[in-house]
């Protein structure tokens, strides 16, 4: 097992390097650069050119690309993400203050998603192709086809036109947030979370409930379930005690795959709701060509993807003793 984990980590190194090299090249080769915007337009051409060169030297952008990449890599090994070019703050601070907003919404939507998805999925699996299964299946599939940003638009338009004044459509908290009492703060946050959480939750709900249903159906076909029924156990007991537990295994893979997306957020929803999350930070940084921030975010995502899949695979073997990872690399994937 340890050998397997080590092998997987070794395998992840070239992937990680590849992702960073290509991202580095892409962001640096993309036209436009972060420095031009900093220079005062009214300066005489000579002075501004001089300032530009000074700035380039200051951020190390005057060196050839491979030198820049090497020094970036050297710093990243010591977990130094550098300073943002656009506002000179440490990149890690910028990410840290955005992180809770993105993770919070993701956690909430996962919680509500499963809260609804598990009963729906179980109900549909117990009587596959029955009336509940067909209705919920079709409805959820229809919902799944509605892009979340379309829903966001519709919700925003509804709130504005009706008008429902107490639901805010932009930002994560009100202007006078610091002056509110604790209860007032919680209420304010909940109000701001309402719309964005809905938009995050319903596509996941559609997916998760079908996921639960599919897995449960698969388990209910197994021999041991037939044995449990033959023993004369109540159907409810069979489903809850015997079948449900084994549906947890695929769930682990799903959560492992979800892990990176939870952290990286959704650029489009965060832009629409002016939500101060990671997705919007990435989008803004790309537009501003803020090289260190873009690189930091893509490194974090790349690492999380690798960690997520590895965690999923390892816990897979841990939960299900039938799965053994021996034999080195051949068994990967």
């Amino acid at each position: 097992m340890l050998q397997y984990i080590i092998n997987r980590m070794l395998l992840a190194v070239p992937t990680f390097l590849g992702i960073t090299v290509v991202t580095f090249l892409m962001i640096h080769l993309a036209p436009g650069d972060p420095l031009r915007g900093m220079i005062d337009e009214s300066m005489p051409a000579e002075t501004s050119e001089h300032t530009y060169e000074l700035l380039q030297k200051h951020f190390g952008l005057d060196q050839p690309l491979h030198v820049q990449y090497a020094s970036w890599l050297k710093r990243i090994v010591t977990l130094d993400f550098g300073r943002s070019i656009s506002d000179h703050r440490p990149v890690w601070d910028k990410i840290r203050e955005r992180l809770p907003w993105t993770v919070g919404v993701a956690a909430l939507s996962m919680f509500f998603g499963f809260l609804l998805a598990v009963p729906i999925g179980v109900r549909s699996a117990v009587r596959p192709n029955g009336w509940f299964d067909s209705i919920s299946g079709t409805t959820l599939y229809a919902l799944y086809s509605v892009p979340s940003y379309v829903t966001a638009m519709v919700l925003i338009v509804l709130v504005v036109t009706l008008p429902i004044d107490w639901i805010p459509i932009r930002g994560a908290y009100s202007d006078g947030f610091d002056g509110l009492s604790l209860w007032g703060k919680v209420l304010d946050l909940c109000k701001h979370l309402l719309l964005i959480t809905i938009c995050f939750t319903y596509p996941a709900l559609a997916f998760q409930s079908r996921f639960v249903r599919g897995n449960l159906l698969e388990v209910l076909r197994q021999d041991y379930v037939r044995t449990a029924r033959a023993k004369g156990l109540a159907e409810r007991h069979v489903v809850r005690r015997h079948a449900m537990r084994n549906t947890l295994i695929p769930l682990v893979t799903y959560l492992g795959m979800l892990f990176p997306t939870v952290i990286s957020g959704s650029a489009i929803l965060e832009v629409m709701f002016a939500w101060p999350g990671i997705g919007r930070l990435m989008f803004d940084s790309i537009l501003q060509r803020d090289y260190p921030t873009v690189m930091a975010l893509s490194v974090i995502t790349a690492v999380l993807v690798q960690v997520g899949t590895l965690l999923a695979d390892v816990s897979y073997a841990w939960i299900d003793p039938r799965i053994r990872y021996g034999g080195g690399l051949n068994h990967v994937d």
């Binding site: 590849g18 992702i19 993309a30 989008f283 893509s298 993807v305």
Partner: peptide
Amino acid sequence: MMRIVDILYGLPYVLFVILLKVV
């Protein structure tokens, strides 16, 4: 070949599109 697929999966997509457009 599969590492290349992994790498492409891991790239920031928005950046990729902007670059393609410009190039």
